[in-house]
Design a protein around this nucleic acid. Sequence first.
DNA 1: CGCACTTTTGAACAGAATCAAGTTTTGTGG
DNA 2: CCACAAAACTTGATTCTGTTCAAAAGTGCG
Lengths: 249, 249
Amino acid sequence: MSISPSIPVREVGLKHLRQACSNCSLRELCLPLGLSAEEMRQVDALVSQGRPIKRGEALYRAGEPFHALYAVRLGFFKTSVVSEDGREQVTGFHMTGDLIGMDAISSDRHTCDAIALEDSEVCELPFTEMETLARKIPSLQHHFYKMMSREIVRDHGVMLLLGNMKAEERIAAFLLNLSQRFALRGYASSSFHLRMTREEIGSYLGLKLETVSRTLSKFQEQGHIKVQNRLIELLDPNALKHLVSNCPD
Amino acid sequence: MSISPSIPVREVGLKHLRQACSNCSLRELCLPLGLSAEEMRQVDALVSQGRPIKRGEALYRAGEPFHALYAVRLGFFKTSVVSEDGREQVTGFHMTGDLIGMDAISSDRHTCDAIALEDSEVCELPFTEMETLARKIPSLQHHFYKMMSREIVRDHGVMLLLGNMKAEERIAAFLLNLSQRFALRGYASSSFHLRMTREEIGSYLGLKLETVSRTLSKFQEQGHIKVQNRLIELLDPNALKHLVSNCPD
DNA sequence: CGCACTTTTGAACAGAATCAAGTTTTGTGG
DNA sequence: CCACAAAACTTGATTCTGTTCAAAAGTGCG
């Protein structure tokens, strides 16, 4: 049985995590690339040992100089941009296997904050060195282009959500998306812990925290989900799916 | 005097445009990269002659196989994604010098439609070949990473707009953004033609077309802008800037 | 164990959507 | 070049969704 994501990582113990991680970070990332042993060695040489980030700490902040991308080894992050006048927009939630920091390449400075929402661990991928290596390993080069492209596609999905969907649809889509991502990682997908506050969910979805809370309560009343603080159980995922793709016309 | 963007390209004549373009496309794109003559030649060899796209035509559509990025040589495009249930979200407006199609790299299929909003011309950059060449020309490789990163940053800006701003702020930000982009290209920045319908603006900004229309009228009443159909004059850009960065707290 | 943070819920309010005409503009074909 | 049809735009009235304000209850961290 895989570790349920509803169990805070804290309980597992950081020592254990560190052990499980040390420098295998990109091995998984690279396995599907079909690299030779020598190429693997070269990638490994670049990738840092896992670096732990405690809950609440920033992995990086907007404005800081850029030198590396980060692969989330374990844990959970939010990234957010802040406008001049102080409005925060959460741009994403990131879990094991996600690559973050790609926004920083364009200006050589990070453009958003990355905050750990639970004790986490990342692998640092020094970008300049990765770029150099990518020139020798075409599939690695292509992989980075792909990851960035995927981020663009994801962002377009969020734009669709923010531009077209009503509160209920947004929340339903959000829950289903989380569920799916947990499933992909082999975690329980119909019962999971939200790592973020209602306010952070709201910021991501363009809603106020009260609306998030109300909508979750409503879904519970309707029997679609069960809410216990941050523990969510999807009782009727199909009902949620129907909500999302339900065209009111 | 530069050609005012308020003059429809049609009036200039396509023949003239074709002439002005032939294969110089990436030359400008690459000039800042400090390439040698030989490198320039290699890039040129890959880049297609300008390809004309008539108003209303699709450069590509979601689902089509991906093989090239496109640099807008001249004209104006919108890109948009459509959800399963038929909701359209305009994800961007693109003008001379913009690079589009990067969303397609992740899945080898285009994920959005690119429609010309006026008679336009693009240069095709076959991606696989560009990738190969990029391995020989580090600054070219880095340039592509940068362009993709820039797109991610831009998308985050739109997310902030969609998630946090009121209708007036969105429209003001939109007008200022267009103005700035025209200015960067040497066009008149305080008087320009909108190439898109109110509905397309609305789709981009997460508003209904009526709201767009009303807000433009309101700005006109307040003396911030002058609206004549699709011709916009910014009478008081500072008023608009103030609207955008005005924190209601 | 207590204090700060988070969450829930209610009531009033505001902003944008929707519905509905009516008008203007644009593009087309004669 | 004009006439006509379709598309795009404006404006008003109404409705509704989500915000704001407020207060109380719950949770969890130090």
